[in-house]
Protein backbone atom coordinates (compact mmCIF):
# COMPACT_ATOMS: atom_id res chain seq x y z
CA UNK A 1 0.00 0.00 0.00
CA UNK A 2 1.37 3.41 -1.01
CA UNK A 3 0.03 5.61 1.74
CA UNK A 4 1.45 8.88 0.50
CA UNK A 5 -0.15 8.60 -2.90
CA UNK A 6 -3.65 7.68 -1.78
CA UNK A 7 -6.57 10.06 -2.06
CA UNK A 8 -5.97 13.44 -0.38
CA UNK A 9 -9.06 13.13 1.81
CA UNK A 10 -7.73 9.80 3.06
CA UNK A 11 -4.33 11.30 3.80
CA UNK A 12 -6.00 14.07 5.75
CA UNK A 13 -8.02 11.55 7.77
CA UNK A 14 -4.85 9.59 8.52
CA UNK A 15 -3.15 12.73 9.80
CA UNK A 16 -6.11 13.52 12.07
CA UNK A 17 -6.38 9.92 13.24
CA UNK A 18 -2.66 9.60 13.91
CA UNK A 19 -2.65 12.59 16.27
CA UNK A 20 -5.53 11.06 18.20
CA UNK A 21 -4.10 7.55 18.31
CA UNK A 22 -0.56 8.45 19.27
CA UNK A 23 -1.56 10.89 22.00
CA UNK A 24 -4.21 8.45 23.25
CA UNK A 25 -1.61 5.71 23.35
CA UNK A 26 0.79 7.88 25.35
CA UNK A 27 -1.95 8.74 27.83
CA UNK A 28 -2.87 5.09 28.21
CA UNK A 29 0.66 4.45 29.48
CA UNK A 30 -0.37 6.28 32.65
CA UNK A 31 -3.06 3.74 33.51
CA UNK A 32 -2.30 2.31 36.95
CA UNK A 33 0.47 4.84 37.62
CA UNK A 34 -1.34 8.16 38.07
CA UNK A 35 -0.44 10.57 40.90
CA UNK A 36 -3.84 10.04 42.49
CA UNK A 37 -6.68 7.64 41.79
CA UNK A 38 -9.06 10.29 40.47
CA UNK A 39 -6.44 11.48 38.01
CA UNK A 40 -5.62 7.94 36.91
CA UNK A 41 -9.27 7.68 35.92
CA UNK A 42 -9.22 11.09 34.20
CA UNK A 43 -6.11 10.23 32.15
CA UNK A 44 -7.72 6.96 31.06
CA UNK A 45 -10.79 8.91 30.01
CA UNK A 46 -8.68 11.14 27.79
CA UNK A 47 -7.01 8.08 26.29
CA UNK A 48 -10.37 6.39 25.68
CA UNK A 49 -11.76 9.48 23.96
CA UNK A 50 -8.71 9.90 21.75
CA UNK A 51 -8.28 6.27 20.70
CA UNK A 52 -12.03 6.19 20.09
CA UNK A 53 -11.70 9.26 17.89
CA UNK A 54 -8.79 7.72 15.99
CA UNK A 55 -10.96 4.71 15.23
CA UNK A 56 -13.63 6.94 13.68
CA UNK A 57 -11.13 8.68 11.41
CA UNK A 58 -9.50 5.39 10.45
CA UNK A 59 -12.80 3.67 9.79
CA UNK A 60 -13.82 6.45 7.46
CA UNK A 61 -10.41 6.32 5.77
CA UNK A 62 -10.63 2.53 5.44
CA UNK A 63 -14.06 2.80 3.89
CA UNK A 64 -12.77 5.28 1.34
CA UNK A 65 -9.73 3.16 0.52
CA UNK A 66 -11.92 0.09 0.06
CA UNK A 67 -10.40 -3.28 -0.89
CA UNK A 68 -10.96 -4.69 2.58
CA UNK A 69 -8.89 -1.99 4.28
CA UNK A 70 -9.46 -1.87 8.06
CA UNK A 71 -8.79 0.50 10.94
CA UNK A 72 -6.37 -2.03 12.41
CA UNK A 73 -4.38 -2.35 9.23
CA UNK A 74 -4.02 1.42 9.25
CA UNK A 75 -2.91 1.46 12.89
CA UNK A 76 -0.74 -1.64 13.03
CA UNK A 77 0.83 -2.01 9.60
CA UNK A 78 2.27 1.39 8.83
CA UNK A 79 5.86 2.22 9.75
CA UNK A 80 6.90 5.35 11.62
CA UNK A 81 7.74 7.06 8.32
CA UNK A 82 4.13 6.57 7.29
CA UNK A 83 2.60 8.13 10.40
CA UNK A 84 1.45 11.72 9.98
CA UNK A 85 0.97 12.97 13.54
CA UNK A 86 2.59 16.06 15.00
CA UNK A 87 5.88 15.39 16.75
CA UNK A 88 4.44 17.00 19.91
CA UNK A 89 1.97 14.20 20.60
CA UNK A 90 4.50 11.37 20.38
CA UNK A 91 6.77 12.91 23.02
CA UNK A 92 7.25 10.63 26.03
CA UNK A 93 5.05 11.28 29.06
CA UNK A 94 7.77 12.48 31.41
CA UNK A 95 6.32 13.49 34.77
CA UNK A 96 2.73 14.59 35.34
CA UNK A 97 3.67 18.21 34.61
CA UNK A 98 5.14 17.23 31.23
CA UNK A 99 2.03 15.24 30.36
CA UNK A 100 -0.23 18.14 31.28
CA UNK A 101 1.87 20.73 29.41
CA UNK A 102 1.84 18.58 26.26
CA UNK A 103 -1.90 18.05 26.70
CA UNK A 104 -2.61 21.72 27.35
CA UNK A 105 -0.90 22.84 24.14
CA UNK A 106 -2.51 20.13 22.08
CA UNK A 107 -6.01 20.49 23.57
CA UNK A 108 -6.17 24.19 22.70
CA UNK A 109 -5.11 23.41 19.14
CA UNK A 110 -7.40 20.40 18.90
CA UNK A 111 -10.37 22.43 20.07
CA UNK A 112 -9.80 25.10 17.41
CA UNK A 113 -9.18 22.48 14.76
CA UNK A 114 -12.43 20.64 15.58
CA UNK A 115 -14.34 23.89 15.71
CA UNK A 116 -13.34 24.44 12.10
CA UNK A 117 -13.83 20.80 11.10
CA UNK A 118 -17.44 20.95 12.28
CA UNK A 119 -18.07 23.08 9.20
CA UNK A 120 -16.03 20.89 6.88
CA UNK A 121 -17.36 20.44 3.37
CA UNK A 122 -16.62 16.76 3.93
CA UNK A 123 -19.86 16.00 5.72
CA UNK A 124 -18.72 12.70 7.19
CA UNK A 125 -15.70 14.41 8.68
CA UNK A 126 -17.87 17.24 9.97
CA UNK A 127 -20.07 14.69 11.75
CA UNK A 128 -17.06 13.19 13.53
CA UNK A 129 -15.87 16.65 14.58
CA UNK A 130 -19.24 17.64 15.98
CA UNK A 131 -19.18 14.68 18.33
CA UNK A 132 -15.53 15.05 19.26
CA UNK A 133 -15.64 18.74 20.13
CA UNK A 134 -17.71 18.06 23.23
CA UNK A 135 -15.06 15.73 24.60
CA UNK A 136 -12.25 18.01 23.57
CA UNK A 137 -13.86 20.97 25.31
CA UNK A 138 -13.72 18.93 28.48
CA UNK A 139 -10.11 17.87 27.80
CA UNK A 140 -9.05 21.50 27.35
CA UNK A 141 -10.80 22.47 30.55
CA UNK A 142 -9.10 19.65 32.43
CA UNK A 143 -5.57 20.41 31.23
CA UNK A 144 -6.07 24.17 31.70
CA UNK A 145 -7.19 23.61 35.26
CA UNK A 146 -4.10 21.56 35.97
CA UNK A 147 -1.79 24.17 34.45
CA UNK A 148 -3.37 26.76 36.75
CA UNK A 149 -3.33 24.46 39.75
CA UNK A 150 0.31 23.52 39.28
CA UNK A 151 1.32 27.08 38.41
CA UNK A 152 -0.42 28.49 41.46
CA UNK A 153 0.18 25.53 43.80
CA UNK A 154 3.51 25.13 45.57
CA UNK A 155 6.93 26.53 44.66
CA UNK A 156 7.94 23.12 43.44
CA UNK A 157 4.89 22.64 41.23
CA UNK A 158 5.31 26.12 39.80
CA UNK A 159 8.94 25.40 38.91
CA UNK A 160 8.03 22.06 37.42
CA UNK A 161 5.13 23.22 35.24
CA UNK A 162 7.19 26.21 34.09
CA UNK A 163 9.92 23.83 32.95
CA UNK A 164 7.43 21.49 31.26
CA UNK A 165 5.72 24.33 29.40
CA UNK A 166 9.13 25.54 28.20
CA UNK A 167 10.17 22.03 27.19
CA UNK A 168 7.23 21.49 24.83
CA UNK A 169 6.96 25.06 23.59
CA UNK A 170 9.32 24.53 20.62
CA UNK A 171 7.14 21.64 19.46
CA UNK A 172 4.05 23.84 19.11
CA UNK A 173 5.23 25.64 15.97
CA UNK A 174 4.58 22.54 13.88
CA UNK A 175 0.88 22.76 14.72
CA UNK A 176 0.62 25.92 12.63
CA UNK A 177 2.89 25.10 9.71
CA UNK A 178 0.74 23.67 6.95
CA UNK A 179 1.90 20.44 5.35
CA UNK A 180 1.02 19.71 1.74
CA UNK A 181 -1.92 17.66 3.01
CA UNK A 182 -3.10 20.54 5.22
CA UNK A 183 -2.95 22.81 2.18
CA UNK A 184 -4.92 20.41 0.02
CA UNK A 185 -7.50 19.96 2.78
CA UNK A 186 -7.88 23.68 3.21
CA UNK A 187 -8.15 24.27 -0.54
CA UNK A 188 -10.91 21.66 -0.77
CA UNK A 189 -12.81 23.14 2.17
CA UNK A 190 -12.31 20.08 4.37
CA UNK A 191 -10.25 21.73 7.04
CA UNK A 192 -8.88 25.01 8.38
CA UNK A 193 -5.83 26.91 7.29
CA UNK A 194 -3.73 25.83 10.25
CA UNK A 195 -1.59 28.96 10.11
CA UNK A 196 -4.70 30.99 10.88
CA UNK A 197 -5.24 29.05 14.11
CA UNK A 198 -2.05 30.38 15.67
CA UNK A 199 -3.56 33.69 16.85
CA UNK A 200 -6.64 32.20 18.54
CA UNK A 201 -4.43 29.46 20.00
CA UNK A 202 -2.08 31.99 21.54
CA UNK A 203 -5.08 33.78 23.04
CA UNK A 204 -6.35 30.59 24.63
CA UNK A 205 -2.93 29.64 25.98
CA UNK A 206 -2.15 33.10 27.25
CA UNK A 207 -5.47 33.44 29.04
CA UNK A 208 -4.77 30.31 31.08
CA UNK A 209 -1.15 31.18 31.75
CA UNK A 210 -2.22 34.58 33.05
CA UNK A 211 -4.58 32.97 35.54
CA UNK A 212 -1.61 31.09 36.94
CA UNK A 213 0.67 34.13 36.59
CA UNK A 214 2.94 32.11 34.32
CA UNK A 215 4.91 33.60 31.44
CA UNK A 216 4.54 32.53 27.87
CA UNK A 217 7.68 30.48 27.24
CA UNK A 218 10.34 31.83 24.94
CA UNK A 219 12.42 29.71 22.63
CA UNK A 220 12.75 28.98 19.01
CA UNK A 221 10.56 26.81 16.88
CA UNK A 222 12.00 23.40 16.24
CA UNK A 223 12.42 22.19 12.72
CA UNK A 224 9.77 19.51 12.74
CA UNK A 225 8.08 17.61 9.97
CA UNK A 226 6.05 14.91 11.67
CA UNK A 227 3.18 15.64 9.30
CA UNK A 228 5.45 14.61 6.46
CA UNK A 229 6.57 11.47 8.25
CA UNK A 230 9.84 12.73 9.74
CA UNK A 231 9.42 11.96 13.44
CA UNK A 232 11.42 12.04 16.64
CA UNK A 233 13.27 8.91 17.69
CA UNK A 234 10.63 8.05 20.26
CA UNK A 235 7.88 7.18 17.76
CA UNK A 236 9.69 4.09 16.51
CA UNK A 237 9.72 2.62 20.02
CA UNK A 238 6.09 3.50 20.63
CA UNK A 239 5.06 1.74 17.42
CA UNK A 240 7.34 -1.25 18.00
CA UNK A 241 5.49 -1.84 21.24
CA UNK A 242 2.02 -1.04 19.97
CA UNK A 243 2.31 -3.09 16.79
CA UNK A 244 4.23 -6.05 18.19
CA UNK A 245 1.43 -8.64 18.37
CA UNK A 246 -0.19 -8.30 14.95
CA UNK A 247 3.25 -8.28 13.36
CA UNK A 248 4.44 -11.32 15.30
CA UNK A 249 1.33 -13.25 14.28
CA UNK A 250 0.44 -11.89 10.84
CA UNK A 251 -2.10 -14.65 10.15
CA UNK A 252 -4.04 -14.15 13.35
CA UNK A 253 -7.14 -12.12 13.96
CA UNK A 254 -7.91 -10.89 17.46
Amino acid sequence: MKWDTCDASVQYLLHLGDDALILGHRLSEWCGHGPILEEDIALSNLALDLVGLARQYYQLAAQRIGNGMTEDRIAYWRSDREFRNHVLVEQPNGDFGDTMARQFYFDAFHFLQLEALQHSSDIELAAIARKAIKETTYHAQHSSEWVVRLGDGTDESRARITASLAKFWPFTSELFEPSSVDRAAHAAGWGPDVASLRGPWLDLVQEVLEQAELQLPEGHAKLLRGKSGIHSESLGFLLAEMQSLPRAYPDATW
Binding site: C31, D40, N45, A47, L48, V51, Y76, M242, L245, P246
Partner: peptide, 26 residues
Protein backbone atom coordinates in the same frame (compact mmCIF):
# COMPACT_ATOMS: atom_id res chain seq x y z
CA UNK B 1 -0.85 -5.08 28.07
CA UNK B 2 -2.81 -1.92 27.26
CA UNK B 3 -0.03 -0.55 25.07
CA UNK B 4 0.27 -3.89 23.27
CA UNK B 5 -3.39 -4.72 22.71
CA UNK B 6 -3.56 -6.27 19.24
CA UNK B 7 -6.50 -4.25 17.87
CA UNK B 8 -7.84 -0.77 18.54
CA UNK B 9 -11.09 -2.25 19.73
CA UNK B 10 -9.26 -4.55 22.17
CA UNK B 11 -7.22 -1.61 23.39
CA UNK B 12 -10.32 0.41 24.22
CA UNK B 13 -12.04 -2.48 25.94
CA UNK B 14 -9.02 -3.34 28.07
CA UNK B 15 -8.39 0.28 28.99
CA UNK B 16 -12.04 0.75 29.99
CA UNK B 17 -11.85 -2.42 32.05
CA UNK B 18 -8.74 -1.39 33.94
CA UNK B 19 -10.19 2.08 34.46
CA UNK B 20 -13.26 0.46 36.01
CA UNK B 21 -11.00 -1.19 38.56
CA UNK B 22 -9.68 2.22 39.59
CA UNK B 23 -13.30 3.27 40.09
CA UNK B 24 -13.92 0.18 42.22
CA UNK B 25 -10.94 1.14 44.34
CA UNK B 26 -12.48 4.57 44.86
Amino acid sequence: WITRAPSLRAKLILLAKVQDEAGHGL
